[in-house]
Design a protein around this nucleic acid. Structure first.
Lengths: 347, 347
DNA sequence: CGTTCTGTTGTAATCGGTTGCAACCAGTCA
DNA sequence: TGACTGGTTGCAACCGATTACAACAGAACG
């Protein structure tokens, strides 16, 4: 039933050449005469040979894989980016290996995460998670034995690593300005996890936006959250409890906006009638929510694609100098505000 | 900068033993005396040794990877299942390799997909996509050189392959019965892609449900769709055009329900006031949609977890007979209806 | 015609672990 | 004391590709 797979030797035999020639016909076709090449290809066809990646990788001293560390695979925001990365990298012949840094139901397993990073596991690394174990931060900083690596979306403050990110502060400013232009003066702000870099940046942008609009910031209207729908719902209760309710709310993620809006709905309130809401991310559902969500658009495809291309570039060049040049490069992708139905002018 | 990684030989040297002993200390600790084992572990620590997977895999004639074929990574429904699979498989020491069978922006690349299936790419396979190239179907049917494989969610009619699926027809019956019990007699049905097995099953369940409720099926109320929000929106227009509009709509996916509802909303209609809507899947957003969506719940975690465990079991046993027993096993997971706000009794 | 060059092919070492087999040791038993 | 046992360990042959190097043939050249 499980007959042994044909090896390169079998192909060589069938084609009447040496294994070296077969190997070259596959890896460096230009080094083989047309005639032999065709004979080899025919033999491969005849034998049904497929290359043994493990052997090739061992000899070539590489792994043929790119690891993508995702904070939460189940989150559509990340899976879309992952999808774009895969679409870019897989056709080149690399395997895309996903690692969920915070798998559901399990606690973070730093041990295993570190395992992914050792450079005999992958030839390249894309990190969508800026929240890494300290041990690793040290590795990245020092010249540890890490493969080329690119951050996407998130990053680690103070580390000069290539990364592709959006202008989070600018996005937040856009959101606030939009609300301000609609006449909102009492603006609440639902935030992400306190230690998250995105939270910090968007918070900064929010403060700047408020300042630009001449609206004094009220810290008690900066509500805690963690990017999830549930935390958005929790924030809704805090909002309901305000004695002077803000008329506009900027949520640091679309999912929190959904949670917020749906919880208000359960309490008989409606958006944008009773309050205007702006999200952040522009995930797929945003345009099909009720009401369609006004939000800050992130080019998720672009993020994934760009990160993948940067990584491939890094992996391609062994040239130390060139790598050094790119070391700290931070590609900044533009954000834009998409105005839909969830915001309206104050009465 | 890029000093060579320590090899097993270096560890052996440091510990004063042979490479064989180091290898055994790692792979078969019980075969090594406690004393030596500790010495080896200390040496590993001291040298910073990490095992070279390519070498190990080559020698062990395995790949250490499990491939998951996903129809659409960007779809939260699948990414959640993938997440569950990863959570189950990664801790065991396997790499989880994802392959998007229909990557965005690119056409299906059957050539590459087949590459993933050759058993020197992965030790096991989980297929979330029942729509496979013919060439492959043949491989699965025959005793080709495929690794153990499990279908999840979808499957291929007529192939005796282990699979974990939900009772799609039962789910559809539940949905229809619910609408019928609320007094709906004019019921529309928005379907998935015609060739999809899920579409077929759910359509069958729908017909059965209608029959059980004594409602004659009206084929002109079976609207085409493809599981996406956009197709749901398109169906909304067909519904609007009906001269005698159905009062209840069963959508074969939550996303189509979102599309349908949001498009009605844009046209000034509201759910469940003007029409009751039932979805299918119970994706994360369903409970936070406005209105919260009544839908057929799929245990996505359970699907992923079960599929992963079945695969691991298959991979573990070399026992041909045992494999044969499991060959056609179809694990059926239960569905249930979650009643929320998007449905109500007819006036 | 001898020499050099170019293009093609084969030989064999190598990548870095794993594991069958044999050697060895100490302890047990007759 | 010698045979035997069971537990540890080392030797060396693998796994299956890649590639440095050498060999060789034919072309081009003086």
């Amino acid at each position: 039933m499980n007959k042994p797979l044909p090896r390169i030797r079998d192909v060589a035999l069938a084609a009447g050449v040496s294994t070296a020639t077969v190997s070259r016909a596959l890896s460096h076709p230009e080094q083989v005469s047309r005639e032999t090449r065709e004979r080899v290809l025919a033999a491969i066809d005849a034998t049904g040979y497929t290359i043994n990646q493990a052997a090739r990788n061992l000899r070539r001293r590489r792994t043929g894989a790119v690891v993508v560390l995702v904070p939460n695979l189940a989150n559509p925001f990340f899976s879309k980016i992952l999808s774009a990365i895969a679409a870019e990298i897989a056709p080149i012949g690399y395997n895309v290996l996903v690692a969920d840094t915070a798998p559901q139901g399990q606690e973070r397993d730093d041990e295993r995460m570190l395992g992914y990073l050792s450079n005999n596991r992958a030839d390249g690394l894309i990190l969508l998670d800026g929240h890494l174990p300290d041990e690793l931060r040290r590795d990245i900083g020092g010249s540890g034995s890490l493969p080329p690596l690119v951050f996407a979306c998130e990053w680690i403050e103070g580390l000069a690593t290539p990364s592709v990110v959006i202008d989070n502060a600018a996005g937040a400013r856009l959101a606030i300005r939009h609300l301000a232009e609609l006449g909102h003066r009492r603006i609440a702000h639902i935030m992400g996890p306190p230690t998250n870099v995105l939270t910090v940046e968007r918070r900064r942008g929010t403060l700047e936006g408020l300042a630009q609009a001449g609206i004094p910031a009220r810290e008690d209207w900066f509500l805690p959250g963690d990017f999830t729908m549930e935390s958005g719902a929790a924030a809704a209760h805090r909002w309901l409890a305000c004695d002077e309710r803000p008329t506009g709310v900027f949520c640091q993620s679309d999912e929190m906006a959904f949670g917020f809006i749906s919880e208000l709905h359960r309490n008989g309130l409606s958006v944008p009638r009773d309050v205007s809401v702006v999200g952040f991310d522009d995930i797929e559902t945003a345009s099909r929510y009720v009401p369609a969500l006004t939000t800050v658009h992130q080019p998720r495809d672009g993020i994934g694609t760009t990160a993948a291309r940067m990584l491939l570039a890094l992996m391609a060049k062994d040239d130390e100098a060139a790598v050094a040049v790119n070391a700290g490069e931070r590609r900044l992708l533009p954000v834009e505000l998409v105005v839909r139905e969830s915001t309206r002018a104050v009465d």
